[in-house]
Design a protein around this nucleic acid. Structure first.
Lengths: 182, 182
DNA sequence: TTCTAATCTGGACACGTGTCCAGCGCAACG
DNA sequence: CGTTGCGCTGGACACGTGTCCAGATTAGAA
């Protein structure tokens, strides 16, 4: 029972997320409503709200799932080169779903507990990738600078001051400055 | 007539912004509604909406006005020291109105044309301050890194991962890394 | 098959946003 | 001292969010 039950629930959740992503691609995040996602998933809006804490939660969850499929860059080349690769891997992945990226930036600022939980995980994921690209011996300040610059770039892209496609190129010299290119 | 008329309008606008700030301090940005601001300003909500394009616009405008009163740090000391001073001057000012800071972060991501206009001005203000602290001869990448790290810090603070009070201290070593401390 | 408990439904609710407009009142101009 | 017109009012509107709940469905257990 419990396995069948949770299968049913899992199905519903998956249908909701799939519908959310489809809706996002089709109408964009401004026009997306929880009810339209529910309808697309073939589920009532009350049901949607039992799985989605909020619109923000939907966006953040979709982003988190999407991000997890970003390839992990391999650890060859110079330190700066490795970090640049890590950055490129992330931005490339993010740029694949521009509407999702646009949606998640404000959503990440939400105050739902679900949003908060995921936001910590996302931050930790970025940190882990930079950490491993940097290798040992990188100072705390360097790690923090990288993370802040990357967050800043995401924010700028979210505000439309930079496209997700150009993020990696814009960040490359910034990474060089922070990590030290010599 | 036009001067008298615009005096009347200017009065209304000022009352709205003053009421907005008071309301923000009193109930916080989550509970603030345009209608409550209008009521506090002694004005109908329809009138409020003729001057405020949106809730986001209110927050961004208040932030912009607040920011403009941040003292400009003087240009003494090392390059890194000057930039750190510039950062501290900004973060100190921002930390004076924590609710405003919390409100503006998501608001800055809005898509109103008024928000967009102000957001460019705010970004330009940050850039100008860093520029003048850096002096001539700082590379493009250094300037961009600074701006991105600062934006990133604002974002982190907006997400509650850092308080505005600790921003300057957290950023100091980051600035040193970016600008080069030697 | 029948029972039971989890899931889902439909539709109401309170609330906020942002828009609109007919009409009112006030301040300056003639 | 009217008249004109700008700014303000009040209150309706459409729409979305997120909450709630009594009752219909469903799937597995007995």
């Amino acid at each position: 029972m419990s396995s069948a039950t949770s299968t049913r629930q899992a199905d519903t959740v998956e249908r909701l997320f799939a519908a959310g992503l489809a809706e996002l691609r089709e109408v964009g995040h401004e026009a997306l409503t929880i009810r339209s996602v529910a309808a697309r998933a073939g589920v009532s809006s009350a049901t949607a709200y039992t799985y989605l804490a909020s619109r923000n939660h939907l966006f953040v969850e979709l982003f988190w799932r999407h991000l997890n499929e970003a390839p992990v860059a391999d650890g060859t080349g110079s330190r700066a080169g490795r970090v640049q690769e890590a950055v490129r891997s992330l931005t490339t992945r993010i740029a694949e779903e521009p509407e999702l990226a646009a949606a998640v930036t404000p959503a990440l600022l939400g105050s739902d507990s679900d949003v908060e939980r995921l936001r910590l995980r996302i931050g930790a994921e970025f940190a882990a990738r930079f950490e491993s690209a940097l290798g040992d011996g990188a100072g705390e300040a360097v790690r923090e600078a990288l993370l802040l610059a990357f967050s800043g770039a995401l924010l700028q892209a979210g505000m439309g001051l930079m496209t997700y496609d150009e993020m990696a190129d814009r960040l490359a010299p910034v990474v060089a400055v922070i990590v030290g290119e010599e």
